[in-house]
Simulated assay, not measured.
Amino acid sequence: MKDPRNVLVIATRQIGDVLLTAPLIAAARQRWPDASIDVLGFAGTLGMLKGNPDIRGFVEVPSGSGWRAAWPFVRRLWRRYDLALITQQSDRAHLYGWVAARVRSGLVPGRAAISWWKRCLLTHAVRIDDETTPTVVEKLKLLEPWRALPPEVNVAAPPEVALPLDLDALLGDAPIVVHVPSMWRYKQWPIAKYIEFVGELLARGHQVVLTGSKSETDQAQIAEVRALGSPPQVIDVSGQLNLNQVGTLLRRAALYVGPDTSITHLAAACGTPVVALFGPTNPIRWGPWPQGHAASSPYLRAQPRQSSRRVILLQAEQACVACGHAGCEDHHHSRSLCLEALPVQRVLDECLAELRMRPGKDQREGDLGASRLK
């Protein structure tokens, strides 16, 4: 194949997975510096990549619509690109790739019986490995016919955008960002534990900033934690910032604490010290990517505490961790006993130890940012 002039990256999943396509896009730009690179994804999910200098434009498609409704869009997409990089295994992603480009490299399920037709449509196929290959590295393997894996991998965070003036005035020197909500219950550290954890931080004089969306579910999960204090000790910015502004907030934070969710990946990409709370999810696949790590797994599947660069990943000490299922009952609304078993004290101890290690700051517990809160 001649060097492509137009490349389409297909990322039809949620915002966290979209962010993890950034290393693939950067690698494609390095391989083909003169190519135009577009990203196709569902409407409302591409914000993590907006402002990325390696991207020319975005192609938004409606999620959940049938092919009849999508037909006008499909006609416009027909063979507009020289190469499609398909970062999802879904039927729809592969059909979009077939429509868009003559040359296609894509991810396919491990079971040949359900992926044969997708392999037939591809010039290069990457078999999904749900056990031992990080998602970031798996996406980079889509470029194997044209370049080797890079020696180190970075996830480009969205560029900074100024915070609202009223929020900027309230922020102390060392805010701690806490992300309480999870989209699915099986990834949720219990709200009662968040209440106890944030209460301990406030008792030590730390400023806590709560993030999340404006959805009814997120607001219900945040409400009891928000009630622990008032600004400036507790600031709730949930639903008030775009992703670029959330990135600005995270870059100013002394620490971020959150579950297996998209904002946790964003915090790691921003270079913020992260304490990630993992339950049944396999961290080899989905652990927050430590900036500059080699193209290999930063984590083991199960370890009570793992640390890589600026990311600390905590798991419960149970034999079933990490099972890889959607909780104990294997559905989105299942409870996860492993998350329920993760003690507040362990999380608190990790956070306080990380805060004491901040360079150039007073290391006495409770002094960080306290002067701005009085």
Rank of each mutant, 00 (worst) to 15 (best):
Ala295Cys: 05
Asp330Gly: 08
Val161Pro: 00
Leu228Gln: 13
Ile55Thr: 01
Tyr81Ser: 08
Gly247Ile: 01
Trp78Glu: 15
Arg76Tyr: 10
Ala192Pro: 08
Gly205Ser: 07
Arg104Trp: 12
Pro175Cys: 10
Glu152Gly: 07
Val208Phe: 00
Ile176Pro: 00
Ile312Cys: 04
Trp286Ser: 03
Arg127Ser: 08
Gln221Trp: 03
Arg80Tyr: 09
Asp129Val: 06
His332Cys: 06
Gln318Thr: 05
His332Ser: 10
His293Gln: 02
Ala294Asn: 08
Ala276Arg: 00
Val108Gly: 10
Lys141Ala: 07
Phe42Lys: 12
Thr12Ser: 09
Ala370Thr: 10
Thr132Cys: 14
Leu95Trp: 15
Glu200Ile: 04
Leu24Glu: 13
Ala174Phe: 03
His179Phe: 06
Leu143Gln: 06
Ala69Arg: 15
Ala316Val: 11
Gly292Ala: 09
Val136Lys: 03
Ala169Cys: 06
Ser215Glu: 01
Ile37Thr: 07
Phe73Trp: 12
Leu121Arg: 14
Asp362Phe: 08
Pro288Arg: 05
His206Trp: 11
Leu241Arg: 07
Leu348Gln: 07
Leu83Tyr: 12
Asp130His: 13
Ala353Cys: 06
Val18His: 15
Leu266Ala: 03
Gln245Leu: 04
Gly51Gln: 01
Asp260Gly: 10
Arg356Trp: 04
His179Thr: 03
Leu277Cys: 07
Leu171Thr: 02
Arg29Thr: 10
Gly366Cys: 11
Gly57Lys: 14
Ala268Leu: 00
Ala156Ile: 03
Ser105Thr: 11
Gly279Asp: 13
Glu144Asp: 15
Lys139Pro: 05
Leu83Ser: 04
Leu228Met: 12
Lys50Gln: 15
Pro359Gly: 09
Trp71Cys: 03
Leu85Ile: 09
Gly292Tyr: 05
Ala267Tyr: 02
Ala253Thr: 02
Ala169Gln: 14
Gln14Gly: 00
Trp67Asn: 02
Ser262His: 07
Pro273Ala: 08
Gly172Trp: 02
Asp130Met: 11
Glu317Ala: 07
Asp367Trp: 13
Val208Lys: 02
